[in-house]
Amino acid sequence: MANMAFRGTPKQERELRRFIRKHKEQPGALMPVLQEAQGIYGYLPKEVQQIIADEMGIPLSQVFGVATFYSQFTLTPKGEHTISVCLGTACYVKGADKILAAIEDRLGIKAGECTPDGLFSIDSCRCLGACGLAPVMTVDGEVYGKCTPESAVKIVESYYEEV
């Protein structure tokens, strides 16, 4: 997946360049710019980082260094459905690791990866703040609380049906 060809559109590029030009003079603009870029493209491929470096007049190594420092920036595309399992303490104490393992097992990929058909990607995340519902997972932002390994797999499978 990492080598998937870049499919950015001219419209996306215009949008990004406009955002950068509007914000590049404000101090510390690189983070908001990267966040915006990821919002536009869904991830931060080389081509996008190069646009940012050129437009902001900073070395690509600096853009890349920041992009790889923060875990929310992703250099690889995400699946059509993104599954996120909370591994915060409250969830962990209630067995979140088993839920993650069950989903990884079901989809045959590890956290941080995307299925070969591009349908699902799994991430683990830190505390979503829904500790009252621990253990928690989200699919495309939809929160599922009080999961068990079995129910988690069923939830994932329900998205297959949708497809």
């Binding site: 690189l30 983070m31 908001p32 920041v66 923060y70």
Partner: peptide
């Protein structure tokens, strides 16, 4: 408002400021 991007260390005060400056936190 400045958004973090998933780095716990940015809760440390000097790292937080470095991050607002648009750098590695």
């Amino acid at each position: 408002i400045r958004l973090g991007a998933g780095a716990f260390v940015c809760g440390e005060e000097t790292a937080l400021m470095t991050s607002i400056e648009g750098k590695r936190g």
